[in-house]
């Protein structure tokens, strides 16, 4: 019922290196592992998986912030699945907040799922349309 990037992916493969994605999709699958700290902005039309730390804005089609992942900045995406920590706004058409997630900032969404246990601080306004290619207002 719920769209769940993590679960779907894990069914396909448990290794991020191979992604379990078809060859054609690998060009668009980025992984920020534990130990990697990015200070700056990321932009892609593909997917970003975050186990490490990003200090900056991410703009992607989809993003998965895992339990150990940490983003300090705005998350822009079509689909955002947050299971780690986000300090900043989340703006996505579909937002999934996992049970261990911590979000300190507003969540702008079209469809929002919050699992029990998530720590949220900030507004959660509904927005009819999220356009990730438009700058935040």
């Amino acid at each position: 019922m719920f769209l769940n990037i993590g679960t779907v992916r894990e069914n396909q493969s448990d290794r991020a290196g191979d992604h379990g994605w078809p060859e054609s999709a690998r060009d668009t699958y980025s992984v920020v592992h534990a130990g990697l700290v990015i200070t700056g902005d990321l932009r892609t039309d593909g997917h970003i998986e975050v186990n490490g730390r990003i200090e900056g804005t991410t703009n992607s089609r989809s993003i998965l912030v895992r339990e150990d992942g940490w983003i300090e900045g705005t998350v822009l995406a079509d689909i955002a699945e947050i299971r780690g920590t986000v300090v900043g706004a989340v703006r996505a058409t579909t937002v999934i907040i996992g049970s261990n997630a911590r979000v300190h900032g507003s969540i702008f969404h079209n469809s929002l799922t919050i699992e029990p246990g998530a720590q949220l601080e900030g507004r959660r306004p509904w927005r009819p349309q999220i356009d990730r290619n438009r700058d935040t207002d």
């Binding site: 991020a16 060009d27 992984v31 990697l36 200070t39 700056g40 932009r43 593909g46």
Partner: peptide, 15 residues
């Protein structure tokens, strides 16, 4: 496992 900056990704900042 290595971190991957895929072909589609553009990073403006330090890693």
């Amino acid at each position: 496992e290595p971190s991957i900056i895929s072909a589609d990704l553009r990073v403006v900042g330090d890693l």
